[in-house]
Design a protein around this nucleic acid. Sequence first.
DNA 1: ATGGCAGGAAGCTCCTGA
Length: 254
Amino acid sequence: MRLATWNVNSLKVRLTHLLDWLGRERPDLVCLQETKTEDANFPAPEIERAGYHALFSGQKLYNGVAILARVAPSDAVTVLPGFADEQKRVLAATVDGVRVVCVYVPNGESVESDKYRYKLAWLAALRHWLGQELQRHPQLALLGDYNIAPEERDVHDPRLWQGRVLFSEPERAAFRALLDLGLKDSFRLFEQPDRSFSWWDYRMNAFRRNLGLRIDHILVSDGLANRARASRIDKAMRALERPSDHAPVITELV
DNA sequence: ATGGCAGGAAGCTCCTGA
């Protein structure tokens, strides 16, 4: 079973890239973030023609998440229980016996921002809910744009990013708190190239210079970790014309 | 160098992202 996550930064703009990529990689399951697409405008026919069922929870302008799966998903949830939120950032469903949770974690803007406090509160609510989900679903995967680089090796210049949003200690602590629930960072279960990142700023030729962060992750429960066989970042998608600023992350399970 | 680049909605500029 091949699991993937990709922040597409507008599904409308990235649809051709997505369909080409689905045909080439044939993932069994894909979590999308930043679809920026209202449900009424979701390109369900094109996705279905590519061989995928689609669940989606979107809104105009910002946010928006979707789950694409070759097997029909069931038991969908579109809200973070106990956390009133207008923003469409969560989608969970069961796919082929695996509980899949797709998240678009708030960016936070800066550590001084109200959005940063919202980010930390949101992450606390996610952790609380996931604790319950794991009790019910030992085979669980949490995929998405976490907007957190967990370790120094996930940041092109840790000294530059020290204390800043996406790499601040409270955010990294929130990430570790997710691991403490019994989740593993599937990318780090395998040997990886140095300076592996999943996001590069559009500006300053950041991609060409590989000035990136690894902020998109696939965490798997202990019940799934022993099925993991490989994980990688599909950096080539960031090199295309008119790319998303994020590259897809793919984890293979037996 | 708080710059730069991209998407969306609006409408010739602004907000947000990371």
